[in-house]
Amino acid sequence: MRNLWTRSTDALSRSLDPNEREAVFGDFAELGMTDQRAMRSVLGLVLRRQLRLWKQWEPWFALVAIIVPVCPLLAALSTELGQGIFPKAWMWLHHGIFYETGVSPAALLVAFFIQAIALITWSWTSTFALGSLSRRTSWVNGTLFFVMCLTLGVHRWLFSFGLLWSTPWAWLLLMVKFLVVLIPAYCGLRQSAKSLNLRIRWMVPLTAWTVTMGVLAFWTRGWGQAAIDNWSHGSSALTLLQLAQRADVWEAMVSHLLTAAVLTGPILYMLAINTFLHRQSRIRRG
């Protein structure tokens, strides 16, 4: 069985160029270096390489334009999604009754799936853009992306459910986070490692899909509030004029628009870059 030092050296060296990796491992063999010293040497080389890469603008742009704004939103939305299904699923499975929200079970299911698909799309497109911006620093930025999406907002949930944390149900939130954010994010990073840019014929439908899912996700998020409004105002729904006069409606709309803009930003950036590259190549071809 290979020891821990060898495995660590192998894992670290994956971020090096294949040629450099070959030369470095050959040097280790020739110098008869111990596993421990080889690991330290590779670590030193990888750190130096990373420091040099971080002198360029791309990894910083990925950090500031994607990770900082997108991760808190994905973390918050996935936590909200997990928290939303928790009481309903709990009541249904333990007591056989439906947690009354004013929205039909079918509509709730549709809203849940639309929001889940929107989160999957946003996570995938964000990490794809992250990896495309700077492939060789993507493991640092990617790790930061995963840690932020996994941890942000979890503490609130821990406190709000208190003792339930010890039950298997408590892991539902983490499961939701894994399924709708972390796994798609990993797939996005993998895809960017395979090919930095998607073809333009894929990019346009993907952008259209992301925007559509974003609109649907924010529309379905409002169903719960609409049901409460309908209930509190009797059977008649609020008119558009009445809605327009309410400050909280405007605040919610601005907040939704900003969130949608931030979450669709990465794919719009990728579309802009791909369109530019596509035009450049057409001009070159004459």
Partner: peptide, 15 residues
């Protein structure tokens, strides 16, 4: 440039 692989280096090339 990358040189030829050698036996003493476990079949790996030199830079």
């Amino acid at each position: 440039w990358m040189g030829n692989p050698t036996q003493e280096r476990g079949g790996r090339s030199k830079r």
